[in-house]
Lab assay of single mutants.
Amino acid sequence: QLNAMAHQIQEMFPQVPYHLVLQDLQLTRSVEITTDNILEGRIQVP
């Protein structure tokens, strides 16, 4: 299920590496919260 959620987020934010999306999802278990984390700059994109 997390993989499906990660792919959904990757479609919206292809610039964010998959492993970072998955790592955040493991903590949040939420597409909405992880999306917010990306938008708020809480996930550092190399």
Rank of each mutant, 00 (worst) to 15 (best):
H7R: 14
E40Y: 11
L39W: 06
L2T: 05
N3D: 09
P17F: 05
Y18E: 04
Y18W: 13
Q26C: 09
L25Q: 00
L2F: 11
L2V: 08
M12P: 01
S30M: 03
P46Q: 10
M12C: 09
E11D: 10
I43C: 03
I43E: 02
T34D: 01
E11T: 12
I43N: 03
M12D: 05
A6H: 02
G41D: 05
L39C: 08
Q44R: 12
L2P: 03
H19D: 10
P14V: 03
M5S: 06
V16K: 01
H19A: 07
Q10F: 14
R29V: 09
H19I: 10
Q15D: 13
V45I: 14
D24Q: 03
T34V: 02
T28S: 07
I33E: 11
S30R: 05
V16R: 00
Q26F: 13
Q23N: 09
L25F: 02
Q8Y: 13
L20P: 01
R29Y: 10
I38K: 01
E32G: 08
Q15T: 12
H7S: 12
R29P: 04
T35E: 05
Q15I: 07
E11M: 15
T34F: 00
Q1K: 13
P46C: 08
L22Q: 05
Q15K: 10
P14T: 04
L20C: 07
Q1T: 14
Q44S: 11
T35H: 06
P14G: 04
V45T: 12
I43F: 09
A6M: 08
L22D: 02
E40W: 10
L20D: 04
M12K: 12
P14F: 03
D36I: 15
P46F: 12
R42D: 03
Q1S: 14
R42F: 07
Q23F: 11
Q8W: 09
Q1C: 10
I33V: 13
M12W: 07
Y18V: 08
L27A: 11
L20G: 02
D24F: 05
Q26D: 08
V31H: 06
L27W: 10
Q1G: 12
N37F: 03
L25D: 03
L22R: 04
L25W: 01
P46Y: 11
G41Y: 05
T34Y: 02
I38Y: 03
E11F: 11
A4T: 09
E11N: 07
D36Y: 14
S30P: 03
V21Y: 03
E32W: 08
N37Q: 01
L39R: 14
L22F: 10
A6L: 09
R42H: 08
P14I: 03
Q15Y: 15
T34W: 02
Q10G: 09
P14R: 04
M12V: 08
Q23I: 11
D24K: 00
R29N: 13
E11G: 07
E40C: 10
L2M: 10
Q44Y: 14
Q26H: 10
V21F: 03
I38L: 07
Q8E: 10
E11W: 07
E40S: 14
N37V: 00
Q1H: 13
E32M: 09
M5T: 04
L22M: 10
V21L: 11
H19S: 09
Q10V: 14
L2K: 02
P46G: 12
I38D: 00
Q15E: 12
E11H: 07
P46W: 10
I9L: 10
N3S: 14
L20E: 04
Q10E: 06
Q23M: 12
E40V: 09
V16G: 01
N3P: 07
A4N: 09
D24I: 05
V31A: 08
E40G: 12
H7W: 13
L20N: 02
Q1L: 13
E32V: 10
N37R: 10
R29D: 11
T28N: 04
L25R: 00
Q15F: 14
D36M: 15
I33M: 08
T35N: 04
G41T: 02
V31S: 08
L39A: 07
Q23K: 12
H19F: 12
Q15H: 15
L27P: 02
L25H: 00
Q8M: 13
M5Y: 09
Q23R: 08
L27R: 11
Q15A: 10
T34E: 00
Y18C: 07
Q8T: 13
V45S: 10
E40R: 14
V21Q: 00
P46K: 08
Y18I: 12
L25E: 02
V45L: 13
D36K: 15
N3E: 15
T34M: 00
H7I: 13
V45D: 11
R42E: 03
M5P: 01
I43L: 15
L27S: 12
E32F: 09
H19C: 15
Q10T: 13
D24A: 03
E32C: 08
I9R: 01
P46V: 11
F13V: 01
R42W: 07
Y18K: 07
M12G: 04
G41P: 01
Q23P: 01
Q1P: 09
